[in-house]
Amino acid sequence: MSELLPSIDQTKKFLKQDLVASFIAGGFAGAISRTIVSPFERAKIIFQIQGPGKGNYKGIFPTIFNMWKEEGVIGLFRGNGINCIRIFPYQAVQFYVFQNLKLNFFLKSGNSEEKELKNIDRLIAGGVAGIVSVYVTYPMDLIRTRLSIQTAQNLSNLSKNKIRISSSQNPPGFWQLFIKTYKTEGGVLGLYRGVLPTTVGVAPYVALNFAIFEQLKEILPDSSAFSKLLMGAIAGGVSQTAIYPFDLLRRRFQVLAMGNNEMGFKYTSIFDALMTIGKKEGWRGYYKGLSANLFKVVPSMAVSWLSFEVIKDCLVIQL
């Protein structure tokens, strides 16, 4: 009878394979999904950093059309290269940390026969995974945000916008912008500008995303591709909507030091930002770009979860 049970060595080998597969699958799933929705991602960022007053960018599809008209196809994917380079380790770390906590801490600390986490455990594991992934990849996220907006035209209602670079000029690349930010904005601290509101937003987002998806897997045991797409879409849409104001703060803090306050907003803290946005832009100001974000997040997370599940299953078999 004991021969039918897996040995300790076999169990350790399986856990190691599962973690490696989760890391690789998570990275590829992130890169694939973000590339598919890149135009919506850039449109969302432009909406978010468009300060008080009326800017030139209104509506999701008109904005995407303007990007295409002003900058060509490359404009639709501006910043996506660095985003993929960032998102690979970002999501790889997320899935790895979540699976690691799930397999080596929560399940071991509870009932040995338990196969799934409780919702509170999922939220904690997801939150920790989100925090770790943010700090590992944050400088790339900051530079990617700045790459996304530097050629966008008329971001605010101000007549002088020194931030914008004409689409006819060759904008600085990643390393140029990285070095400039490092030298002129306080070294490493400059590369982590806005990391606190980012962490405040990402941790609950990742926690909810993992918890909702895994809960839906229990409710809808159907393992078809369509079911995984549906569960990923629901998990991404609900979790992103719940924490969206913090995502907006994340983008605004990332571009505060660009130029001389030409963006039309300036904040001293997260609390000050929340109060200022409420006073100057009303409650709608907290949700600028939400529709563009949902156009991005819903299909992105649907594809991401499906890609993760498929790639991980293939890798576990091969490893």
Rank of each mutant, 00 (worst) to 15 (best):
1 M>W: 07
2 S>Q: 13
2 S>D: 14
4 L>Y: 14
4 L>T: 15
6 P>I: 06
10 Q>G: 09
10 Q>H: 04
15 L>S: 02
19 L>A: 11
29 A>Y: 09
29 A>T: 02
31 A>F: 00
34 R>I: 13
36 I>N: 09
37 V>K: 07
37 V>M: 14
40 F>D: 09
41 E>M: 10
42 R>P: 01
44 K>G: 07
45 I>E: 05
48 Q>R: 02
48 Q>S: 08
51 G>T: 03
53 G>R: 10
54 K>R: 11
54 K>N: 04
54 K>P: 04
56 N>T: 03
57 Y>K: 07
60 I>C: 07
62 P>R: 09
62 P>K: 11
69 K>A: 12
69 K>N: 14
77 F>G: 03
81 G>Y: 12
81 G>K: 09
82 I>T: 14
85 I>S: 12
86 R>C: 10
86 R>Y: 07
86 R>S: 13
90 Y>P: 00
91 Q>K: 05
93 V>P: 00
94 Q>M: 15
99 Q>A: 15
102 K>D: 06
103 L>C: 07
104 N>D: 07
109 S>R: 15
118 K>E: 13
126 G>K: 06
127 G>Q: 01
127 G>D: 02
128 V>H: 00
135 Y>M: 09
136 V>T: 11
137 T>Y: 03
139 P>R: 09
140 M>E: 03
142 L>S: 04
144 R>F: 06
144 R>C: 09
145 T>H: 10
152 A>K: 11
153 Q>E: 13
154 N>P: 00
157 N>S: 10
159 S>R: 12
159 S>N: 14
159 S>I: 08
159 S>E: 13
160 K>H: 05
162 K>C: 05
165 I>S: 05
166 S>W: 03
168 S>R: 03
169 Q>I: 03
171 P>A: 01
172 P>S: 09
174 F>N: 03
182 Y>S: 11
182 Y>V: 05
187 G>I: 02
189 L>S: 15
197 P>E: 06
197 P>S: 08
199 T>R: 12
202 V>H: 01
202 V>F: 05
205 Y>A: 02
206 V>F: 02
209 N>P: 00
209 N>A: 09
211 A>L: 04
215 Q>L: 05
216 L>D: 11
216 L>H: 13
220 L>I: 15
221 P>V: 13
221 P>D: 11
221 P>Q: 13
225 A>R: 10
228 K>E: 09
229 L>S: 03
231 M>E: 06
234 I>V: 10
237 G>L: 12
239 S>G: 03
241 T>L: 13
242 A>G: 02
243 I>H: 00
243 I>C: 07
245 P>A: 02
245 P>D: 01
249 L>P: 09
253 F>G: 10
253 F>I: 05
255 V>E: 05
258 M>C: 10
258 M>H: 01
259 G>P: 06
262 E>N: 15
262 E>H: 15
262 E>D: 15
264 G>S: 03
279 K>Q: 10
284 R>F: 12
286 Y>R: 06
289 G>K: 00
291 S>Q: 09
292 A>P: 08
293 N>W: 10
293 N>F: 07
294 L>E: 14
299 P>S: 05
300 S>G: 12
302 A>E: 04
304 S>R: 13
306 L>P: 04
307 S>N: 11
307 S>C: 15
308 F>R: 01
308 F>W: 08
309 E>S: 13
311 I>F: 04
311 I>D: 00
318 Q>N: 04
